[in-house]
């Protein structure tokens, strides 16, 4: 493998600012009703170490894993994979979400790591599966809709 492919193996890292205190944001990471307002259609959440993390994103796409760390209102670490998947089994990747108070609001930093390196055959399957699931969930841009609308 050449070093050129280093960018392929990187983690997903994102940061966003929210005009609300960390305590308010944190609720949306641990409360099923609030979770499904931004991600998924139904959720089973047990926000304590080793507690269940289960979010149905689409008909054929359920993210499943565990809460590995719950430190309100600063930090949540999840394991993340897909229910019924051999390639990316539940809990096979890691999502770290950190909240920091800043200027009266919150800076949210998300890092999704442990993703399958695409260089490897088996992991290519994993990626395809992974993105297939997300593709279903993300289609149409409105997770609340039963089926994504073609028009608009």
């Amino acid at each position: 493998m050449s070093d050129q492919q280093a960018t392929i193996g990187r983690d997903v890292e994102l940061e966003i600012s929210i005009a609300a205190p960390p305590e308010a944001v944190f609720e949306f990471l641990v409360d099923p009703d609030k979770m499904t307002r931004w991600m998924g259609t139904s959720a089973r959440l047990d926000p304590r170490t080793d507690g269940e993390f289960w979010v149905k994103l689409g008909d054929d796409a359920t993210a499943a894993g565990r809460y590995l760390e719950v430190d309100p209102p600063n930090r949540v670490v999840l394991s993340w994979g897909w229910e019924g998947s051999e390639q990316v089994p539940p809990g096979s990747t890691n999502v770290v979400i950190e909240l920091a108070a800043r200027d009266g609001g919150t800076t949210v930093r998300l890092v999704h790591s442990g993703l399958p390196p695409v260089e490897d055959d088996k992991h290519l399957e994993g990626w395809t599966y992974f993105l297939d699931r997300l593709g279903i969930a993300g289609a149409g841009g409105d997770p609340d809709a039963e089926t994504p609308t073609e028009e608009s």
Binding site: S17, I18, A19, V25, G138
Partner: peptide
Amino acid sequence: LGLDRLRLEVE
């Protein structure tokens, strides 16, 4: 997209 939705909902 997810974080953007999170921001909108919290705000």
